[in-house]
Design a binder for these strands. Structure first.
Lengths: 217, 217
DNA sequence: GTCTATAGCTTGATAGAC
DNA sequence: GTCTATCAAGCTATAGAC
């Protein structure tokens, strides 16, 4: 992730982002101090404020970093799917897959940081204080694009049913990103929170059936 | 909620629980100080530690308080449904309804505190640090009972599919409890996070269809 | 860009008077 | 049970030397 040609300042910046990501994901915004982060990154306390201005802005930078690549990937997969079935329309499953799969990719390929980012998004999406700013600003533009396609793929579906369906999908998706390990215990080890391929393979048919059930009514 | 015959100490205790519930729900455990809570409750700073021992234990007491009545209500509704269809088995929808509806009841009938409690559970369920203790201890015993009934109602369904289906239901349910208002904006006001009857009426068919889709495969 | 030093404030918890 | 007073530790943020 870190190019060998980076300047010292950039290395510090990236280290701070990486450690902040891990710590915020585990303890939440208020559960982590600037000191915790700079200590974990092995840099001086003052550098967090020098590079990011404030703790708030550092959090925002962490949240934004991977949101951009994830959203870009979502759009690529969506346009791919649309093209593949043009001039017809793709199955609902493929549209949902284009939305959910980039999350799995980041968490699988992004190592500890990628998994931490998933946890972070899960907490932000479920926080009344943070969801309005974080999710709305960084994710909703792409969600609106998906809603357009869903509308086309499910003709005649009422708007309310379409939005509520998305809401339930969002809940299922973000709880999966949280990787809390709760289901591991509940299922006596049969299901594992970190088995992302198992989860995402099931999330698509589960939610597709849900969308169809609501849109039928 | 507060009996007129309560002693002064009990009133203080209840006030602290009520205000802690509201504040923890909005800002999370680390976003609230003992001073914030005692100030909101109009009692002395030292009384929180006198009555509850520590901030951790106060949080735990808040979380446990409504969990007990919610779980009791879930079991009552479940046994009702089972009895109504005996010696046969109830439809999947009724079982899911017995699990989800008590949440709506508490949030609708419990006023500001009830809604705050929903937000609190949403955050705990999505937190890697808190979910293991909070959810596992207070909710999983009842969930295990529901899993037994779901197993009976969906004969031949593989265990993994059953547990993952519950996981997705849990995500949809807790995001609905969070009432973040995100969907309100996204849908340009067509859907409202606080319209609990609209949400819970749709959650049942959405998730029932999901369970059936996964168990069929 | 980095580091030292520090200002100014808030934190959880408690000892002891009432 | 309640309140005053306080402790020791933590916090964010910044001014100024290098």
């Amino acid at each position: 992730m870190r190019a060998p040609t980076q300047k010292r300042g950039e290395i510090t910046r990236d280290r701070l982002l990486d450690e902040a990501e891990l710590l915020f994901a585990l303890h939440g915004f208020d559960g982590v101090s600037i000191r915790d982060i700079t200590k974990a990154a092995g840099v001086d306390v003052a550098l967090a404020n020098y590079h990011f201005g404030s703790k708030d802005k550092l959090f925002d930078a962490v949240f934004q970093r991977r949101a951009e690549s994830m959203n870009a990937r979502r759009i690529v997969l969506l346009e791919d799917v649309l093209e593949r079935y043009a001039p017809g329309l793709p199955p609902l499953e493929d549209v949902i897959g284009a939305f959910t799969w980039p999350v799995a990719e980041i968490m699988i390929e992004g190592g500890d940081g990628g998994r931490a980012y998933g946890r972070l998004v899960a907490q932000v999406n479920n926080s009344p204080k943070l969801a309005q700013v974080g999710m709305t600003r960084y994710f909703d533009p792409v969600v609106r694009r998906f809603m357009e396609v869903l509308r086309a793929v499910l003709p005649g579906c009422r708007e309310e049913e379409l939005f509520w369906s998305y809401h339930f999908l969002s809940g299922a998706l973000t709880l999966s990103m949280a990787e809390t390990g709760r289901l591991d215990r509940l299922s006596d080890g049969r299901c594992r929170s970190d088995d992302l391929k198992a989860i995402f393979a099931r999330m698509v048919p589960f939610c597709a059936a849900g969308f169809r059930a609501l849109c039928k009514a």
